[in-house]
Design a protein around this nucleic acid. Structure first.
Lengths: 196, 196
DNA sequence: GCATGTTGTTCGCTATAGTATATGTATCCA
DNA sequence: TGGATACATATACTATAGCGAACAACATGC
């Protein structure tokens, strides 16, 4: 979906005309028309004005994607990975949001398992870890913290980070990985400079 | 943080010079210099070239924010809301990501409680619901689905949506709300058109 | 019919984005 | 003292972003 189409789509859902948008954004009517038609290559400043007029972010206009509106993810249909070494289980809970740069993953750590560490993600990646069950020790770069059931933590994941099950029963942790602003974005984020 | 500073910061973390970036992006050296210094108002196309040269998305350059690198969120320190009417509990698990447009919230539904519905979020908002415990019936717009423990679902949350605890014990659901591309973005997303 | 809007498009014109090239200025190394 | 490298700045030029205003297409009305 092209950026002009995105503007046009948002404008029509708001039920406003090009003239209205011109007034609200302070951008000339002619410019609105040309940008929607893909005839002009707007500056970032102008795009910011248009986005403001549309009550949305510039990113929303740039990163247009067609995420399906409803995606059930039954437990028995989830993508599961089990480490044969230590029995650690990894479940992907949100495949639909991956293209938007967000992952939701559930880890189940067997009791006493040494689950190794994760290599650093790209710069700008953040994670939220939520301990659903058990007690885990997390090492994030130089930080180190013990989380009990119900605890959570959010951290920059661009360093080596790891979790260890401290308890004598299995531990369950849900991770929300936000790479929406990371280097080497997961999703195809660049729009091609259209030829003139 | 200004967009030029963001480019400069990412460039230096990559350890490349302005000339290198000019080569990698196909943008003139002089332009790189001026954009970094905030003296030019780049077009979206040029910004795309620069972003490609920096291996990141345009959004990453625009939505610069300083999210703290480590935020523990102990259960007894979490922001909690309890509905006196039906005993429903709401816990905010990730306050640090809110400014990035992502919320992680845990709901605890008492058995048999009618927990009402949620009004539609803004267009472009998506949610992932993960049933940690119990059995809930979810109504999302015209869709309707029963989720058991371990099930998850991702859906566009720009329609009325609600969850009902079907079981005879409490149900726990974790919601990941992604409004990174929504209208009326939660975070201050527009950059001010800087005066020339 | 022909006024009167309303929405979208095209037409000049001016300001400026963007280029290549040259110059200045540090710093570091020989 | 010279010569590399990395960054900043200045100049002259071309392409085009962005504007106001006129224009077309399609409705409505009387």
């Amino acid at each position: 979906m092209e950026i002009g189409d995105q503007i046009k789509a948002r404008r029509s859902t708001l039920g406003i005309t090009q003239s209205d948008l011109a007034d609200r954004s302070g951008v000339s009517k002619a410019m609105i028309c040309d940008v929607e038609a893909g005839k002009k290559n707007p500056t970032i400043r102008l795009l910011g004005q248009i986005a403001a007029g549309l009550d949305c972010s510039i990113s929303a206009l740039i990163d247009a994607d067609e995420t399906p509106r409803f995606v059930p993810e039954r437990r028995d249909q989830q993508r599961v990975l089990v480490d044969p070494e230590n029995g650690m289980e990894r479940r992907l809970l949100s495949s639909a949001l991956i293209r938007r740069g967000i992952e939701v993953i559930q880890y189940t750590y067997p009791p006493g398992a040494d689950c190794g560490g994760f290599p650093p993600h790209h710069r700008g990646t953040y994670e939220t870890a939520i301990v659903i069950k058990g007690q885990v020790r997390m090492e994030i770069g130089s930080e180190s913290i013990t989380l009990n059931e119900g605890d959570a933590a959010t951290y920059a994941a661009d360093v080596v980070h790891s979790a260890y099950n401290l308890g004598d029963s299995e531990a369950v942790v849900v991770y929300v990985v936000d790479s929406t602003r990371a280097s080497h974005p997961a999703r195809p984020a660049q729009r091609d400079p259209q030829a003139e």
